[in-house]
Simulated scan of single mutants.
Amino acid sequence: MPEAAKRVDLFFDACNAHDLEAVARHYAPDVILVAPGGLAEGLDEVLSYHDVVWRAFPDERFTVLQTIAQGEEVATTVLLSGTHTGPFLLAGGEVVQPTGRHVSVRSCWTFTLQDTLIADHQLFLDQLELYTRLGVPLLGSLTPVATDESL
């Protein structure tokens, strides 16, 4: 297994332990994280992101399903699972109070490492699937898009 993939495996071990200090040891000081809800720049913001999610899902677990590595680039598919027992900040800024629901959602994570540390981290997941599993109502009404009748 390539070194970058081993580092990512250790990162997920630290995440599963919910150990922010251990997670921090895998990130570069100027790390950038792009995830649902926005951009986190620098170690403090990235660790804050993890902390917010773990407060909402204190039993969150990460099960790596597949890893693809090439040089310092690593992509993983991950099953996220946990029970929603704390306030959860949605991508639009609204907060969902605890539902007590257990959810499992597949996700894709990409990592770029520099000098064995994660410098760029991107997380993709189907937010609609997550919100549906939490029972979050869709905000706003669905309105048809205006079309040009001449087409």
Score class of each variant (00 low, 15 high):
119 A>E: 15
20 L>D: 07
73 E>D: 11
46 V>S: 07
90 L>I: 01
108 C>E: 06
109 W>H: 13
22 A>C: 03
50 H>V: 10
117 L>Q: 10
141 S>V: 15
52 V>I: 13
137 P>H: 01
11 F>C: 06
65 L>I: 13
7 R>I: 15
107 S>D: 00
37 G>C: 02
130 L>W: 06
43 L>P: 03
36 P>K: 03
44 D>H: 12
136 V>A: 06
97 Q>D: 06
146 A>P: 10
27 Y>K: 01
47 L>A: 00
126 D>R: 08
128 L>Q: 12
35 A>G: 09
53 V>Q: 07
43 L>K: 09
132 T>Y: 15
59 D>P: 04
29 P>Y: 09
42 G>L: 02
133 R>L: 15
123 L>R: 12
83 T>F: 05
106 R>A: 09
14 A>W: 00
75 A>N: 02
70 Q>V: 14
109 W>N: 10
43 L>S: 00
119 A>W: 11
62 F>R: 05
2 P>M: 05
119 A>N: 14
14 A>Y: 03
93 G>F: 04
69 A>P: 11
50 H>M: 12
32 I>P: 02
95 V>P: 03
72 E>M: 03
121 H>C: 11
75 A>L: 09
17 A>M: 05
72 E>T: 07
150 S>C: 10
8 V>Y: 04
98 P>E: 03
135 G>V: 08
54 W>E: 01
49 Y>M: 12
40 A>G: 09
72 E>Q: 14
145 V>A: 14
95 V>A: 04
73 E>T: 13
119 A>M: 11
100 G>V: 01
36 P>F: 06
113 L>H: 04
24 A>G: 03
77 T>C: 05
41 E>A: 15
21 E>T: 10
113 L>Q: 02
151 L>H: 14
128 L>N: 13
117 L>F: 08
43 L>T: 07
106 R>D: 04
150 S>M: 13
45 E>C: 08
105 V>S: 07
101 R>S: 05
98 P>S: 02
14 A>Q: 05
46 V>W: 02
13 D>T: 14
151 L>A: 15
107 S>G: 09
32 I>F: 09
130 L>K: 10
48 S>T: 14
94 E>D: 12
70 Q>A: 15
36 P>L: 04
90 L>T: 00
87 P>E: 04
4 A>M: 06
142 L>N: 15
73 E>V: 11
61 R>N: 05
58 P>Q: 08
96 V>T: 07
2 P>E: 10
31 V>D: 06
24 A>I: 00
80 L>I: 00
121 H>D: 15
144 P>L: 13
